[in-house]
Structure formats: C-alpha cells, structure tokens
Design a protein around this nucleic acid. Structure first.
Lengths: 366, 366
DNA sequence: CTGAAAGCGCTAACAA
DNA sequence: TTGTTAGCGCTTTCAG
C-alpha cells in the first residue's frame, strides 16, 4: 500500500515470476520450470503455479528472458516500405505463421533508416530478434556475410542470394514470365514490349529471360528496342511506355511489365497517348498485388503467391531458429496467370510481323 | 582463437560493454556513461572509448538496457492489417518520426492475433515497448482502461476514444465530408448518396454528419434512402451502390463513399450497371490512399494527411514517454479536397431537384 | 521433483 | 571525473 500517492512518474513494475512464486508457495525457479513446460514438475505444483499465474495476471518479461540467452520470440522483418500491398501481403503471411508459433514481428522499413541498417542488423543479431526475414530488393552483401558468419537465422523473400548460400523463398519467375508472354502471343500479339525490373535483382533477370525464351519458342525474334530497363516503379513504367509508344515504329501492341506497379504506370501512359486498354494495346503485369483488381480495367497479371511466400519463409526461418545447423533451403512457389481485363486480341496484326513460316500470300476477305 | 572449430550451435555472444571497457582501459560504467552521452567524461576518455566501440563493432544490447528499467526504445503499433495503403502510409509517418529519435517499431496486426491481443498489450506494457500506437478501428475499452490505469503511454490514430481521455490524432472528418458534399453540389448534383463507414467508429459518424450538414446548408433535404450503412470495405461499397442504383428512383447522380476502399467498390458497381464515371455518375471518396490515383478514372477524394498523422502521433507518444505526466492531447489535422477525375458536372439536372432560390426561368444560350 | 544461486548486459546510485 | 556495486526478471546448472 505505498504506491498510491505519487502522481507522476509512478514506475509500476509488472507482476514477476517472484510474485507468482510467493503466491503459489514454491521457489521462483519452479515457476520458471512450469512456465517453460519442463516435464518433471509434480502435477499439483504445476496447477498451483498456473492458478497463481492466472490470478495475478502474470505476463512474462520478454527482455529478461532473451537477455538470459533464451529466445526473444521476436522475428525481424526488413522491408523497403509499406506503400503498396506487396510487402503488406507478404507480411500477412509471415505474421500468420509467426502468430501460430507464438512469435512476434518486428518491422524495419529501410526507407527511413538509410545507413542505419547496419546498426539494426547488428542489434537484431545481438539478441533483439531470433531471426531475420529480408524482403529488401537489394540485400547488401555485407549483411548477408555477417549474418552467415554468425550463423544467424535468416531467410530471403523474393530475392535470390547471389552466392546461392542462403535460405530463399521465391516464385517461378522465369516460368511466370514465359507463360505471360505465350499468353500474349496466343492473343495474336507479336510486337510485345517488355519493361524490366531492376536488373541487379535476380528475379528481374529471370523474368526477362522467361520473356525472351517464350518469344524464341514462338519464333518471334527478340528485338532489343522493345525491351526497356525499368526499376519496378510506377513512374518508370510510365516513362518506359511513353518512350516505347513514341519512338518504336511500328509500336508494340502489347506491353509486359515486370511488376504490377510498373504496369500501372504503363496503363497511364497508354491512356495518355489515346490508346484504349485492351482494345488498342494489351498490358500485363506481374505480382498480383491487391490493387491489381482495383484498377480499371482490371489488370491481367502473373500472380505470385505473396502471402504463401511469407508463410513459407517464416516457417523456414522458424525451423532454422529451432536448429541452427539446419541447412539453407531454397523453396520455389508456383506463379499463376490471372486473366482479367487488360489484355485482348491483337487487332492490328500486321503482316510484316509474321514470322517466316507464316509468310504466305494474304488471303482475300470474301 | 578458440571458437573456430565447433561447427554447429556455436553461440557467439556479441561484443559487450565489458569488452569495450577492457579495450579502452576504463571501467565498464564509464563506457556506459560515454554511450549514454553523459556530460562529465574527460574528452580523451570519451575518445578512447568511442574508438574502441568503433573498432570492436560494439552494438548495444537492447534487452539488457530495457530490463534495467530504462527504455526499450521500441514503440508498438497495433493495426488491423496491412492490406491496403492506409496503414502502410500511416506507418511510414510513424516510422520516420521514430527513426529520427532512435526508436524502433514493433508491429502487431490484430487480424492474426484475435483474442491474443490482451496478451500482447500485456507484454507491451510489461516493458517490451515504451509506448503503444493504436490504429485499431475498434479499440476495445478494456485495453484503454488498462493502459490508462497503468499510465502507460499510448495514442490513438484516426479513432476517437469514446471517453475523451486519450491522446488522439485525427483529421477534420466533419469538415472534409462537408466540403466534399458542397463540391458535389457545386457540380450541380443534388441527389447525392452517402455510403457510411462503420458507424460504431466516431470518424464515420463525423463524416456522415458533415455530409448532412452540407446538404442542409445547400437547402437539399436529407433523404434517408440515399444513405446506406457500410463498413469501410470495398465489397460493401459495391453492394451499397448496387442497391442505390437499383432501388432508388430517380437514382443518385453522385455517390459519396466514406472511404476510398468503398469508393472503389462503388466504381465497380457503377460500371457494372453500365454507367460511365464521371459522365453518368460522380463518385468521391475519403482518405486518399495511394491507390486512389491508380484507379481509373483517378479518384476524387478527401485527403487525410495519413503520413502526417502518423508522424504527429509518434511525436505525441514520444512526448508522453519522456514525461509520463504529459496530459493527453487531441490533435486534429486538416483534410483537403483532392480533385481528380471521378467527379463531373451533373448532366441530368432535373428541375424538381433545384432548390427554391434557383427556380428562375432558364436563360437561353445566345 | 524442487530449491539455491550464478549470472545474461546494462544503468544508476554511491563512493572515491 | 571515474570506479564499484547492486540489481532488472529470468533460465539454468548444481545440489539436494
């Protein structure tokens, strides 16, 4: 009864393991055992302790637990930002998996930390979190090296480690791009432009390769002027499309953007140029972020199972946390073509675009 | 040279304050002083310590620091989800402010914790975080009470505390809705429908009231059949609009949705009914989430300064963390009408809709 | 099966 | 100006 009357700064400490011990008349070590599920505790003792825990509303102090060398039951997530649904969707998967295992998520968005990232990675490895998930599009090798050196659990999401030595969850980027391109071709398109992602990123390269392979398999020559390097941003998609529409002649009838965001930019540019989608030009994206079905027309895109990727990554990470010698795995999840409204048949198929074997005398319309 | 050859489970502990002390030949208390910016340390000592810190790559152990009763320098954020840009944008503001003050963000998304929230709030108050930010649309009173009881720093974002006793950051909901409605009226609309938000939420009620007040000030009677209760979801916006279009006669020429998400739903429904936006029907939203300018046509909406709200909330929270007796504040940030492409003049102005003072003989065009 | 006790890394009196 | 020291709450041997 002595903490009632000091209005400011009252430093109310929570209920500790000691309070519980007193209340249940055992040593606090025993309480700790009960709490951590130690097997050899007499049933009655356990019950007595649990009852006290309930009654007192005891909540474990995570700092103390982790300080002692145990787990903090916190997983760090380093992501570039939360602006578009991309990270949010992955985070939901992660979050769901973690919650089921009694872990918490600590979020770091690198956009605001520039340069302090090293500090964070340090703090995280220092016990703040038990593991680290990275969505960072460009993971500085320095972190990876340090992480690996310390044998600290981590996993990369949608981003291959250049040294092929990390746990990675990704999607079938090559395959997805291949299918999207074939789809466009089935629709009659042969002048299919491609806006790349950041080519420093592995997935971006894979997507481009899938695109090229599909073209080749369709007997369409790969024309470099139809490939524009982008960086996964909407603005860049916009600019790339403007350029494509203005300076390539004849202009493409379809545009494959390496991600939805740049596809949105492409849509804007196309419309600004007076083109209707999909009547005059087809546009396809990649990712299937939530807003892909908000835009008009709804975007046809290659779906990456983002939530699933988050879930799987979390699962992998947890496995590594449990067993630090768990070898790194690479899991590749399937993509899926989601056909919506932004692609249509090529209406201005021109003969000079036809490939060799198609060159035959034009057939007169009756 | 003794930790090279035990491949698995090597439990490498980080560099501690003690290592630094040894390296710089001072007591570790002095190192602590230097690190916490204590004033009275001899310049040369400070330099020596800092140099060792650098050289050894020392990183503070946050758990230990917070355990000791100090700050954890972590702020918790409880949000419903990350699916749409709403929370993401607010989070960016928070994040920016925190980073500038050397705080970290710990994220809890309630969608996956259902029912464990109480546990989290407990853990957070128990020292895991120094303060809590809530974007939860429906904040259970139990938390608020507990938080307040313990005098634990917290702030609500875009959600008024029913008991008017918390720190709150919100926007001028009433005002924003009022202006949006007036704008629609200036465009010639008089049959303006309104899709509400979750009416259990204060901001939703404020917006509705702003709408009604504007109508009244424009001498337009409030017609209950034009007001449909929604819940801030896209799907509901869609359904409400369908209903509005089918069962109200004559149908509204403009729809004011209480948030952008439901406005997107409304756009879908309108289009499905064969209406062009904005030629046949005007649609206006509220929030200005990032995708508002992705959709087509770009959504005219009332901008809430989400990022700013996050920043201000974080600032308020930090102030409370510094001084626990800091009284709760309520800060209201201005909204702003963002005119884009989804609203246009009413083309089917009917005379029976004109208000009294407008009844005058139509003027002939020259 | 349970208790005693030694810290985990750090901060904050209190001494010197 | 700097050192010494007592814990913060908890896990984990080591002894009963």
């Amino acid at each position: 009864m002595n903490n009632e009357s000091n209005p400011p700064q009252k430093k109310k400490r929570g209920v500790t393991i000691i309070d519980v011990a007193r209340a249940s008349d055992v040593s606090y070590a025993t309480v700790s055992r009960v709490l951590s599920g130690y097997e050899f505790v007499r049933e009655s003792t356990r019950n007595r302790v649990m009852e006290a825990v309930e009654r007192l509303g005891y909540v474990a102090n995570l700092q103390a637990r982790s300080l002692k060398g145990g787990r903090s039951r916190i997983v760090g997530l380093l992501a570039p930002n939360l602006d578009n649904g991309y990270v949010g969707t992955i985070a939901r998967g992660i979050d769901g998996e973690l919650a089921g295992n009694n872990y918490d998520l600590m979020l770091y968005t690198s956009h605001s930390h520039r340069g302090k990232e090293a500090f964070y990675v340090g703090a995280i490895m220092n016990g703040l979190a038990d593991g680290l998930l990275l969505i960072a599009p460009l993971v500085p090798m320095t972190y990876l090296n340090e992480l690996r050196e310390q044998n600290f659990p981590y996993a990369l999401i949608d981003q291959a480690d250049p040294t092929e030595n990390s746990s990675v969850v990704e999607a079938t980027n090559w395959q997805g791009a291949y299918e999207a391109t074939r789809y466009l071709n089935q629709l009659g398109h042969t002048r299919i432009a491609f806006i790349t992602g950041l080519l420093a990123v592995r997935s971006a390269v894979d997507r481009m390769q899938g695109y090229k392979a599909a073209l080749t398999d369709c007997n369409i020559p790969v024309r470099e002027e139809l490939i524009i390097e982008g960086n996964y941003q909407q603005q860049t998609g916009y600019e790339a499309t403007k350029k494509l529409l203005q300076s390539v002649n004849p202009p493409p009838t379809a545009i494959f953007a390496s991600n939805d965001l740049s596809a949105f930019g492409a849509m804007d540019a196309a419309r600004e140029s007076g083109l209707r989608i999909p009547e005059d030009i087809s546009i396809i994206g990649f990712d299937d972020v939530p807003q892909a079905s908000f835009v008009y027309p709804k975007l046809t895109t290659v779906r990456q199972p983002l939530e699933e990727m988050g879930r799987v990554a979390a699962k992998m990470l947890l496995a590594q946390i449990e067993d630090r010698s768990h070898p790194p795995q690479r899991i590749t999840l399937p993509t899926e073509l989601v056909i919506r409204d932004s692609c249509g048949p090529n209406r201005r198929r021109e003969h000079e675009d036809l490939v060799e074997k198609d060159r035959r005398p034009p057939i007169e319309n009756p």
